[in-house]
Amino acid sequence: MTQIERYIFRIALSAFLACLVGLTGTIWVTQALRELDLITAKGQTLLIFLLVTGLSLPTLIAVISPMALFIAVIYALNKLNGDSELIVMSAAGMKPRAILRPFLTLAFAISFLTAFLTIQVMPSSFQELRDVVTRVRGDLIANVVKEGQFTSLENGITFHFRERGQGGALLGLFIQDKREAGKTKVYLAERGLAIDVDGQSYLALEKGSVHQQMKDSRDSSILTFERYTIDLAAFAPPDAEIVYKPRERSTTQLLFPDRSERYYLAQKGRFRAELHDRLSAWLYPIALTFIAFAALGDPRTTRQGRGLSVAGAIVAVTVLRIAGFAATSAAARSAGAVVAIYAVPLVAIGLSALVIFHGPAVRAAGTRLGAAIRRPRAPRLAAS
């Protein structure tokens, strides 16, 4: 790149990084606030909280990057035009393709990043997030048992605790165990704490008693204890096999799926749509760059013209994204709609390139067409 092209590239790159960091940080904070109940209500550690919220970052970056690039290109072109640099470049004979080159260089770099995230990183992060959420939901103490409520499980266990203390401790604990036919056990404890030993979950009870009574007997045995340990694995229902959704599967698994799998047979369209949506995601940064440059690449001196151009570019990007979502949705229902997934960004690139490189001819043709439509027709002579 020439010196002037490096100058334009630095302006666009700095604007892109500022937009990307600002937008990603803002949205990530809102997502993190929604997951605070992992610590406050579900008793999970700060590490689990950071892991769950951090796994959403690749998705946020992949979604925000094209829009941040679009904003950066608009900002850079407006800055160049406002400082009259765009006018000087044009007057000096600098062709549109030379001005466009640094923006396209940045766009291809963002396209590579988007492709890497959507094809490789995002499926792995979605899968890991699914595994973490499954483990959190499978935590009996954190998710099934509610403070101040009697919770009855399907296997004959009834849980109750008065309140949750510091460190996730359960205060005022009551457990009724009716798993064995004809026998009832009741555990009462002042305090209980879930612990993990060699990957197994246990509930350590402190200062309580165990009441055991047979069905046909009025007598009951009472055992007091200072510390008593219960295996929580017996209380929880057996884990079901995890079935990963299409977005949680690797690109290789989408390319070569197990065609005998029931879930694949029922959701074949979603597998197809997800695959081609990933493979086409890299086209959108380039398309948005072309749209922004087509709207603002020409030097202008009136602010009104720039404002209308920015509004037109935003409308065009909105239509582009809506059309892309519609094409992906249609591809889930029909294999023939797969072509539309790639056609939507490619058509946007083609039309924008036509405006950039042949703008005067396109505008002249449009002027002639408009004049021909508005031209009054000569009256016909009545037949004699």
Rank of each mutant, 00 (worst) to 15 (best):
A142W: 06
Q212D: 14
A68R: 09
D239T: 10
Q31Y: 13
N78P: 01
V339A: 10
S329I: 12
D177Q: 02
T134S: 11
I74D: 03
D258W: 00
A361P: 10
G305P: 00
S280R: 03
P257N: 08
L13A: 13
F49D: 04
V145W: 05
L60P: 05
I356R: 07
G82M: 02
W282A: 12
V145H: 05
A233R: 13
R6N: 03
V347L: 15
S65E: 07
A311Q: 08
F9Y: 15
V338G: 03
I175L: 12
T30H: 09
L170I: 04
R321K: 13
A98M: 03
H358V: 04
A76M: 08
A330Q: 10
A194H: 09
E85V: 02
M67R: 02
P58G: 04
R262V: 14
E5C: 03
Y263R: 07
A181I: 12
S250E: 00
R249S: 06
D219R: 10
G336Q: 09
L140V: 14
F126W: 01
R262L: 13
G350I: 02
L140K: 06
I356K: 03
A142I: 05
V63M: 13
P237Y: 09
G54D: 00
R6F: 03
A371D: 12
E226R: 09
E180S: 07
G148M: 01
L47S: 11
L23S: 09
R6I: 00
L170Q: 02
Q212A: 15
S111R: 05
I286L: 14
F159E: 06
A323H: 02
A294R: 02
F108K: 04
R247D: 15
A41R: 14
Q267W: 07
A142C: 08
K95W: 10
I87A: 11
A109R: 03
P237N: 10
L205Y: 04
L47E: 11
D258H: 01
V197D: 15
K245T: 10
P379E: 15
L106H: 00
I157E: 09
L60H: 06
R247L: 11
Q31C: 05
A236W: 01
G43E: 08
E206K: 11
I39M: 12
R368I: 11
A115M: 10
A323T: 01
G208A: 04
T45C: 01
R368Q: 11
G199C: 00
L346C: 11
S14T: 06
V52F: 01
Q213I: 11
F16T: 05
H358A: 14
Y228E: 10
G43M: 08
V21K: 00
E35S: 07
E147D: 07
I61V: 15
A32K: 01
L104T: 04
V132W: 00
A233S: 15
A266W: 06
Q304L: 09
D198K: 13
K183G: 04
G168L: 00
Q267S: 12
L173F: 13
L381E: 15
T367K: 09
L57V: 15
A273C: 03
M94E: 03
I341N: 06
F357I: 04
L223I: 15
T302V: 09
P360H: 04
V73W: 00
K215F: 08
